[in-house]
Every structure is written in structure tokens, then in C-alpha cells.
Write a protein that binds this DNA or RNA. Structure first.
Lengths: 342, 342
DNA sequence: GATTAGCACTCTCGTCCATAGAGTGCTAAA
DNA sequence: TTTAGCACTCTATGGACGAGAGTGCTAATC
């Protein structure tokens, strides 16, 4: 990474920030006028030509101002931007929205997503902890009407997965109860991914040999959760918000973005594949999906008991206020972790 | 309702169907050419002038063709359109998408919503059965880690509501178990809305007097579900699809619509307030929300055990293929009812 | 009396063109 | 090294204009 001299950095910052604020290519005069760099527009013009040569700026056409390239944004994010904390007001708002006692986790996550989108004017994505990595708390089998039953799998963080099953004739609700208890006793503390490979299955099988049929059904479902390709549920919010952004005035672009993000596999790839615990930024064509090449993504993981669990993130135009968005995402993950650990 | 003579009906049908197909005001020549009415364009011109006078058609400007007014669409829907069944292919697709055994109900509803949007190119809304009207199947209290517990309320149709609660020190997991069983025994079969007013509460209270603290907490949550203003969860899908429609090429319109529909109260009002079991159509300004005045809504209720439960619906441009959309909505509700009753 | 051909009239939309405005790069002076 | 000045480039804007589509009306026709 070439180290830029201070003035180039200042010019770079000015270009990015002006472009972020006004969504229009910025010219040397604008910078000379609005930012107090102590040099004339001609000097800035020269610096900008240099920055263009370095690949940090680009021009839509010769007689327009300049705007940051992907590399330019990357430089800005890595070297210049500061993660900025939300205002007290926003913080208060976040606390109020997701901090409510005794609401369903689902609702907490949904509220978080909405808020995130609201504050950043981006699309927000909230990914639940993936079932395969989740630590199991309780297995419960509940009889329903008309020969059906429901298998509930509750994870340590309080997420509930449920499956409806046909109930064989010879399975009584006492059996269900019994199996539930034994399974819970054996499996609590294991991750769903670990169950199959673990020793405990042996123990369970021997203890529940007389409920073989029911046990097999349940284990089958459990093992399906454990497989890697069962993907975490996620929630997209804020389609209306992202359309405030000038770059989404073209419907086709908005449409493409929404279409790409409605694919589970994409979300999986973009968010869950990120290992970083800290705020992570993906700029423009750094992601490999055609439809969202001109968007940036900011994500972070929330954690439960110190273990990274699910992720939240936003997707917006490359021209976003990175400092602010990163701050918001970071703060919200902390709040979420806090609320979910409470 | 003035009865129109046959030819006017034909002209009306032609105008609506041509406009629906091409999204452009239709002129008398077009109808004379494309629809075989056996009269000249001049005659059709006269008929159209009459229809305009009746309020069924309107012109964007003098020298343009005509398009249906709200009243025109209403007439078309009530008197002319036929609900058209989906193609075999579509039916197959629906069955495959929502008919999968052993998937979470949540996923079934989500799949239904996506499909509905996909097929109709409208926004789809899927509303879960409202908790207050749902018939209770099981109440389950499960201990979580670190002094928390979870209350699960499972309805007859297999919907799960959960709440996280702080667990008082002196409540043991045996107590939770006991309370769960007693509550389930007493309350199964009651709707959540009925619980409070019913006699059974007395019985429960006396039987569980020794677990008073825990019971109070749980009853408090249950009663919160029963109140009318706890609103059913719903799911919006297909923002990307509705943008295919020419009337949503203007982002601001799309934005307004999405914003309106993201309000729980609006969904509640628009869908849940409809009592009709059959397919119900709301055209243009028949709804009272500013942002969606130029949209139409088609909804129907799915049922569980013959009782209307939740609703599904689509929202799209007034200029939609009412016959086809109504058919799709109707078919999908039947399929949903079938799957959920299975 | 109903239908139709013909025609004048109206309104929109796309194209073309000229102009204003913004920004650049280069050169020469400070 | 910085800056003032200037010629040049490109876009955006607005007006003029003609093509095209459709109507309403009148008079002729069935």
C-alpha cells in the first residue's frame, strides 16, 4: 500500500465525503470552496489527477468532476474513515426498539432489522444463528390433533425450530414426553452439528430402545438440522428505505438488487462466509454477484455467550457514509448481543 | 346498477383486457382491429363515449385512448370477469412449493408468499392466524440458561409463539413442568381470546396455588396474547416482482406502496378486517390509504378445520389481470388450508 | 334509426439544435 | 511549487417541430 502524503489524503477524504453527501461528481473548485485545504483549485486539480492515476478516483466523462473508485473507497475505509458512534438519540431509539423485555426473539430481530434500515437508508439483513452451529437446550415433542405431532428444538439462545410430523398410531403422548426428556437430558449443551458424530447417540439409543420408531423420526429431523446446507433463516428489511438513495431511482437497479438478495444462497455466501467478528466491509465489485456490483455491504456478527452467532448487515449504494454505517452496525450488534444474552 | 346492453359489455371487456395486457390507453381502432365485435371503430367510439359518461372509462387527455376507471374495474370484476384457474403447471408448482412434508410452518407460509408474488407479479402478504383467535393446543415452559425461561404457546394449527422471561430464583424446572401440564390440560381447545373470560382460570388457580408466582407470570403473557390489539404476524414478499409492472417504474410510487404496507396496522385493517371467506377484491380508491390509492388488493382467507384462520393477499397495480389473480389467490388458499389441515 | 366513412382538431412524444454551465488540462507567470 | 488564465470538452436544459394516435362531429349509407 503506497503511503499517500497528507495533502493527498485530505483531498481524498474531501472527494469521498463530498460525493457521499451530494451524490455528484466533485470538482476541484468545490473542494477548494467547501474544504479548507489552504490551496487553490488548480493545486487540488493536480492532486486529483494524481489520485486518478493511482486508481482511487474516476471520472464519468472528461468534463465532469471525479468520484471515488472501488479502490478509492477501500482506501478511504481502511485508512481514512473513522467508525462514528451513533447519536444519543439514535442509541436511545435502538435500545427502545430491541430492548423490550419479554418479546419474541423473532420480533427483536425484526425490530433490529427495521431500525438498521431506517437509520442507514440501506437494505438490512438479519441472519439468525444457524441451526447447525447452535447449542441445543431442549427437545420437545408435542402431540397435535389428528395424528400429528410437533418437534420443537430450542437452542440456548432461545431460538425455536419446529417441525410438524405425522404421528404413528402406536406412539402415545407419554412416549413423546419420555423421549423428549431423555433427548433433552442427553443433548443439552451439544451443538446441533455435533449430535450425530457424538458418543451420546449410543447412550440415547440404548436408553430409548423401546421407543425406537419415534426416536428414529426425531433423530432424522435432528440430523437434517445438523447438515451444513440447512441454512440459517434470514430477514430482509427496508426495501422502501433504500429507494431514497439517488442510485436507486432507476427501478431496474433496485429490482436487480432485491432479486439477488432474495436468494438464500447469496445471503449465506455474503454474510455467513465472513469469519471476521468485527465490522466487515465489502465494497462494490469485491463481491461476486453481478446484480449488486455497485453496492457495498457492511456486516458484523452478534454473539451469544461470547460465541459468534448470527450476523446483521446492510447493503446500500457504494456511496454510503461508511463511518456512520459501520458505527451503526457495530452498535446494533453489541445491543443485540446484550439483549440476547440477558 | 344499470344493466348495460351486450355490446357495451363487450366493449367494456375489450377495453379492460386490452389495457391490462398492454398498459396503454386503448383507442377505438385498436378494439375494432383486435376484438371481433363486428362493428366499425366509429361505433365503438360512440359506445366508449357512452361508457365514459357512465363513469366506467376515463381519458388521460383528449386525444388519447381510454382506460377503465375504478368504477369500470369494479363493474368488470363484478359482472364480467371470470375467476380463472391456474394452469396445471402452476398448480404443480404450488403443490411442490408448499406441500412439502415436515417443513416448518413458517417456511410453508413464506414459500406460499413468494410463489404468490412470483405468479402474479404483485406484492404478496401472508398473515398468520391471529393469536387471539387461535385455538390453543399446548402451553410449555422451558428452562433456559442463566435464570431465564421460555414460554411456548402452541396453537392447534401448529403455530408457535414464544416469549423469553426472567426466571425467579425459587422456580424449579419441576414447577415449570407441572404448570405446563396443568395449563395444557385445562386450556387445550380454548381460543387464546377466551381464556381470560372463561371459568377455567378459577380451576387452574386453585390447582396451581402453590406455584402462584410462576402462574401469574404465565397468565400475564397469555392474557397479553388474547387482547385484540396483539396483531397477527405477517410477511411481505415480492418487492422485486412488483417492480416489473410498468406503473412501478416510478420509484417514488413503489416506495410509497412499500412504506404503507410495512405498517402492521395497515395490513391489519386491509386484510384482517375483511370478513368475507371468499376471494375479496378492493379496487383503487376503495381503500383509504393515500399511498396505495392506485393499487388493487385481492385477498382470501385460508382456513383450519373449517374456521377462517389467516389471510393471504396480493397488492398490485389496478391494472391487474383480475380473473387470473383471483384464481391464483383462491387456489393458493385452498392448498394452504389443505396443507395446514393435513 | 343505427352505422360508418371522412375529416378537422388536439394532445403527446421523440428528435434536433442551440446554449449555458461545469469542469478539466495545459501553459505561463508568480 | 503554486496559481491564474484560458481554450476545450462534455452534459443538461429548453424550445421548436413534425409524426402519430385518437377523438368528436358531420354527412352519407344501410
Amino acid at each position: 500500500m503506497t503511503r499517500l502524503d497528507e495533502r493527498k489524503r485530505q483531498v481524498m477524504r474531501a472527494v469521498v465525503e463530498s460525493y457521499v453527501a451530494n451524490a455528484q461528481p466533485v470538482g476541484s473548485r468545490t473542494i477548494a470552496r467547501d474544504y479548507d485545504l489552504g490551496v487553490s483549485s488548480a493545486t487540488i486539480r493536480n492532486e486529483m489527477a494524481d489520485l486518478e492515476e493511482l486508481g482511487y478516483l474516476e471520472q464519468p466523462h472528461t468534463s465532469a468532476g471525479r468520484m471515488p473508485s472501488d479502490a478509492g473507497y477501500r482506501f478511504y475505509v481502511d485508512e481514512i474513515a473513522r467508525v462514528s458512534s451513533p447519536t444519543h438519540l439514535q442509541l436511545e431509539r435502538m435500545r427502545r426498539a430491541i430492548g423490550q423485555q419479554a418479546s419474541e426473539i423473532d420480533e427483536v430481530l425484526q425490530a433490529a432489522g427495521r431500525l438498521l434500515s431506517e437509520i442507514t437508508d440501506c437494505l438490512s439483513v438479519v441472519v439468525e444463528p444457524s441451526p447447525s452451529g447452535a447449542v441445543l437446550n431442549t427437545v420437545e415433542i408435542v402431540p397435535l390433533e389428528s395424528d400429528r405431532m410437533m418437534l420443537l428444538v430450542i437452542t440456548r439462545e432461545g431460538l425455536v425450530h419446529n417441525r410438524m410430523l405425522d404421528c404413528p398410531d402406536d406412539v402415545s403422548s407419554e412416549q413423546m414426553n419420555h423421549v423428549s426428556h431423555v433427548l433433552t437430558r442427553y443433548l443439552r449443551g451439544y451443538t446441533l452439528g455435533d449430535i450425530l458424530s457424538s458418543e451420546v447417540v449410543r447412550g440415547i439409543r440404548s436408553e430409548l430402545d423401546h421407543c425406537r420408531k419415534l426416536l428414529d423420526m426425531v433423530m432424522h429431523i435432528l440430523s437434517s438440522y445438523s447438515s451444513e446446507d440447512v441454512q440459517a433463516r434470514y430477514r430482509l428489511e427496508g426495501a422502501a428505505n433504500i429507494m431514497k438513495q439517488p442510485e436507486f431511482q432507476d427501478v431496474r437497479r433496485a429490482q436487480k438488487v432485491l432479486r439477488v438478495l432474495s436468494q438464500q444462497s447469496v445471503i449465506n455466501d455474503l454474510l455467513r462466509s465472513v469469519r471476521s467478528e468485527d465490522v466487515f466491509v465489502l465494497i462494490g465489485s469485491e463481491n461476486r454477484y453481478e446484480g449488486i456490483r455497485d453496492c457495498s455491504i457492511v456486516t458484523s456478527a452478534y454473539s451469544i455467550r461470547g460465541q459468534s452467532a448470527g450476523r446483521i448487515g446492510v447493503l446500500g449504494p457504494r456511496r454510503m457514509n461508511y463511518g456512520r454505517v459501520m458505527g451503526t452496525v457495530k452498535t446494533l450488534t453489541s445491543l443485540l448481543s446484550e439483549v440476547l444474552n440477558r
